[in-house]
Design a protein around this nucleic acid. Sequence first.
DNA 1: GGTGATATCATACGAACGTATGAAGGGAGT
DNA 2: ACTCCCTTCATACGTTCGTATGATATCACC
Lengths: 213, 213
Amino acid sequence: MNQIPEPKLAYDGTAADLIQAARALFALHGYEGTSVRAITQRAGTNLGAITYHFGSKRALYEAVISSALEPTRERFAAAVAAAGDEPLDKAEALVRTFFDFLQENADLPPLMAQQLTSPEPIPAAALRTISGNIGMLASLIAEGQASGSMRPGDSRLMALSIAAQPIWLTLARRALREGVAIDQDDPNTRARLVQSVVDFVRAGLAAYPENRE
Amino acid sequence: MNQIPEPKLAYDGTAADLIQAARALFALHGYEGTSVRAITQRAGTNLGAITYHFGSKRALYEAVISSALEPTRERFAAAVAAAGDEPLDKAEALVRTFFDFLQENADLPPLMAQQLTSPEPIPAAALRTISGNIGMLASLIAEGQASGSMRPGDSRLMALSIAAQPIWLTLARRALREGVAIDQDDPNTRARLVQSVVDFVRAGLAAYPENRE
DNA sequence: GGTGATATCATACGAACGTATGAAGGGAGT
DNA sequence: ACTCCCTTCATACGTTCGTATGATATCACC
């Protein structure tokens, strides 16, 4: 019998060029602020290409959002697997990996923020990815609580406290540089910021203080 | 001698109506997604009103951003003053007040996120407000470190870890409801979320574990 | 009561928008 | 060689955009 067709998340040729160009422009100028003319021009193709390959500008947008979020899944899973057995170490690995991923995909925080901001429905594929990631972090915390290394509390809510930090601090990058003189473009500063978040998260999760006197 | 004129942050009459209408619409649909026709119609005035009172749509936007952020200053200061002497309690008061303020001004996180997302310069008045608030939280942490109740670490970076949580969790409100089934519109759920962040922040700051066994 | 400043109004203008349409390319299979 | 089918292209259409313009309204003040 027929399956409801999943929207594809991998593209090639002109469609991939469109996704890439659109992703950069949407992140910079938002959905309404980006014209199909700007996208097709940046993708080096014709004005009609979006209509042909995706049907409409909005369908292209949804493909951008879903495909941008999707790679986080395996990236996070790999990070957790590579870390040791101690849940606190896994959490730290997750935080560092999240920071790294957002560094490599600097357009992701703007895209997410815009999507969260707009009244348009969140694409189902994106919702599934978010939910999966939060769930992974939450079950990792539950594991730590079971083993006694993490303090009690609602593991899902604790996961949100953690996830908020890399996203928001990356999103606010420019404001932090201009307003608080914290420049994440400087690798040294950035390393200190990431370390500070890691320390905060470990302290926020741990059942007993680590390395404190 | 002449001062460089500060842009005014309080408005009345038609100008105030325009600010209010624009703020709601910008938060919902973004800058580009909001037309001057929609704003003037919602404000119950004429198409030409924005040009007359602010000169341009963008000037109105900057007035919206600056005036929306400004009230946080005294609100936070009052919250800290009302809390006890213990810095950890002041930090908790700040977190709760931030959540409350964002609840009352639900359009603020979208506005901030859109501004951070866009390549347009951040209005100087907004930058000053942000910087002042982070500075207040940071010096509160430094105070706690000096008195021994908070763990060591860069107080400014720790302040950012804290500030990120209310903002992002409020911004992601819809995604949390649809994707993780955490509905902040339910007062009970919301209280548990706020309490969880408070616990996380206290644990993240404290030099010694509080109420843990 | 007329005069000038301030504010509001209806309307016009050119530019940019998303999408539709149909013609032109370009290989694979016969 | 010819026919499909997929893709790319140039162009046109109707709409909406931000701003400019000039007329009208309101009201304090001499």
